[in-house]
């Protein structure tokens, strides 16, 4: 247990060091542009699976949280010229509140009704932002990047590193949850809510907690996106593709372990980046759809599930 923890934190530190080092030695800008997107999807998928994976409440509102993250940054920049850390923290706070509200409103719904309600919420918020002139309405808004801080040569490199930090944060939280009583409670209620309640699990409170944490992280991950694109419009900030991509990555990786969404996001995110560059963004969506269908049909427990099955078979082979 303890040794695992140390290994994890050493790994995280190495990862961040590598990301930082990369900003120092790589001069080509493309790896940072592409890397940012992949890191963003890793963080989204990990954050999503806290509610969607551990608790089994399939949230299609990733786009809602992401978009609200984007637009809270837009607002803060336009109104106060707030710096990036403030944008991210504020977005996290708003995301937590939003998660709480969403939870109160929808967590009593079962299965598909919950999912549909989260889609509904996305469109409603998108529509509201579309009608909000101050942040540019439907046409969108241009955003000026401030000069970059001393540590980095270039703003995109900084965003890349910031996103790497968010990934570590999200993974650490997700991992903590999985290994703690919260994770066990979520797993129990995912299996059977009534049986969980009757074993003393406060299901509603745990679901709310998962919703709040997941929401805060999703929003925080969206916040730097405004600076990354230097532009925001409701149609792309709230695009349903974020929801489906995130869901697909988590399901493809497998939600039974915190590393599943990471694997799925790296796999699908990298593929998508390559396809966008080499072929077209339509093919990209096609691959998303096809992979989602294939995995849901063929490997319902995702890559993690496949790996576990292989190991189990091998172990059984050894025993007999």
């Amino acid at each position: 247990m303890k040794r695992n923890g140390i290994a994890f934190w050493i790994g995280a530190a190495l990862f961040l060091a590598a990301a930082l080092l990369m900003t120092k030695v790589v001069s080509n800008q493309y790896p940072f542009f592409a890397g940012y997107v992949i890191l963003q999807f890793i963080a989204l998928a990990v954050a999503w699976s806290i509610l969607g994976g551990y608790a089994g409440y399939v949230n299609f509102g990733t786009s809602a949280f992401f978009g609200v993250g984007v637009y809270s940054s837009v607002f803060l920049v336009k109104a106060f010229g707030a710096p990036l850390p403030v944008q991210i923290l504020t977005a996290a706070a708003i995301g937590a509140l939003m998660g709480f509200a969403l939870g109160l409103l929808t967590l009593r719904m079962q299965g598909i009704f919950f999912s549909i309600a989260t889609i509904a919420l996305t469109i409603i918020i998108e529509t509201a932002v579309t009608n909000w002139r101050y942040v540019g309405g439907a046409a969108g808004i241009q955003i000026q990047r401030p000069p970059v801080s001393a540590l980095f040569d270039n703003y995109v490199q900084m965003l890349f590193f910031v996103q790497a930090v968010l990934v570590v944060l999200a993974v650490a939280i997700s991992r903590y949850i999985q290994n703690s009583w919260i994770g066990r409670g979520l797993q129990a209620l995912k299996d059977d809510e009534l049986a969980a309640e009757c074993s003393g699990v406060p299901t509603l409170r745990l679901k709310l907690l998962a919703c709040v944490i997941s929401g805060a992280l999703l929003c925080a991950v969206g916040a730097p996106s405004a600076m990354y694109l230097q532009f925001a419009n409701p149609e792309s900030a709230f695009n349903l593709n974020y929801s489906v991509s995130t869901l697909a990555m988590s399901l493809i990786g497998g939600t039974a372990h915190w590393s599943g969404p990471i694997i799925g996001a790296i796999l699908l995110g990298t593929t998508q980046q390559l396809l966008t560059v080499t072929i077209s963004s339509e093919v990209n969506v096609l691959v998303l759809g096809v992979m989602l269908v294939l995995f849901v049909v063929g490997a319902p427990e995702g890559i993690i599930g496949l790996i576990r099955r292989i190991f189990r078979n091998r172990n059984e082979g050894r025993e007999s």
Binding site: W181, R184, A188, D192, A195, A196, G200
Partner: peptide, 27 residues
């Protein structure tokens, strides 16, 4: 505490983990 007419185990868990849920939360 109760049992269910149609058993409702936590399917993704082992027997020990099933009990640990109750021990963790109902203590």
């Amino acid at each position: 505490a109760r049992s269910f007419q149609i058993p409702r185990p936590f399917r993704s868990m082992t027997v020990a983990e099933n009990l640990m849920v109750a021990l963790d939360f109902a203590a």
